[in-house]
Design a protein around this nucleic acid. Structure first.
Lengths: 149, 149
DNA sequence: CCATTGTAGATGCAATTGCATGTAATAGCT
DNA sequence: AGCTATTACATGCAATTGCATCTACAATGG
């Protein structure tokens, strides 16, 4: 008679690591969102989309491509694009090859905002995160975390 | 004349690690929330509060204590407690030593739900997270992440 | 060509969150 | 004691999110 019917129980060490991951991300994200807000800048969600657009070859992507890259839910992205467009940071353009599709194009204002946000964001990353890790730590952490992508 | 006025710029390696952390947490959390939902269980926020209560000495805590332990915002916690109470999982009790305060007490139903959620949660942690790490990895990761608590 | 199925994106509505502020009670100062 | 500041928690309202569903178009199979 098998004893271990319930497989897949994590060890205490795994649970500690799990909690550590959740807490670290929560704290760091909270700190950085606070820095952005204090600088009068929008939240990170806006940055993520702008960044994907800015670094794309033509400064434009299809919504579903943004969705893949940012892990935003489709309905959330749809409305986030609404807000970005209302703020003049992106523009929707028709996609001729497929009547269902569209391009989301970053505007100059969008590029400018992305740069301004990056100044604050970069500093916050370094101060809250980078400053606490050696180069070797950084490499180790990146390697470990890459297993979950 | 100093060249480096703008200090605190993270290296590319630090940025990679940062992105890795955000993405790993986002993916893992999403996966686990999906598992809970599929099992017809409430979201992790409910679990976190129930767990803090269950593991507290008397099965009760002050709201501000829960707040510290979970990093929930005060106004969010206040309303989360409303929902937990409405669901019969906790009860508010008066705190005699301070008229402003109250106890949040976990009920038997609350304890039962915490156990049921843990079964799903534990399995999800192991499958999505623990299974991808050796014991040494786990120790390393915990140690690195602890710098941000 | 037509019917069915799949994909891209939008949207109504309810639930949750964020922000600002409110209320009640305690603590601290003079 | 009396006044002010602080702490604990709640709440109105606007913004965001989640869920389910909808529309429009495209692809596939007969």
């Amino acid at each position: 008679m098998s004893e271990k019917t319930n497989r897949a129980k994590p060890s205490d060490a795994v649970i500690d690591a799990w909690i550590g991951l959740m807490r670290a991300q929560q704290r760091l994200l909270g700190q950085i969102e606070a820095d952005l807000k204090q600088a009068g800048l929008p939240a990170l969600g806006w940055y993520d989309v702008l960044w994907e657009l800015v670094r794309s070859p033509q400064g434009k992507l299809r919504p579903f491509e943004i969705e893949e890259r940012t892990l935003l839910a489709q309905y959330n992205l749809s409305r986030l694009i609404d807000r970005l467009e209302k703020a003049g940071l992106v523009q929707r353009q028709t996609f001729d090859q497929d009547g269902r599709g569209q391009w989301v194009v970053v505007t100059e204002e969008g590029r400018a905002l992305q740069k301004r946000m990056w100044k604050v964001y970069a500093r916050a990353i370094e101060e809250n995160f980078g400053a606490k890790l050696s180069e070797a730590d950084v490499a180790t952490l990146t390697s470990l975390l890459s297993r979950f992508s």
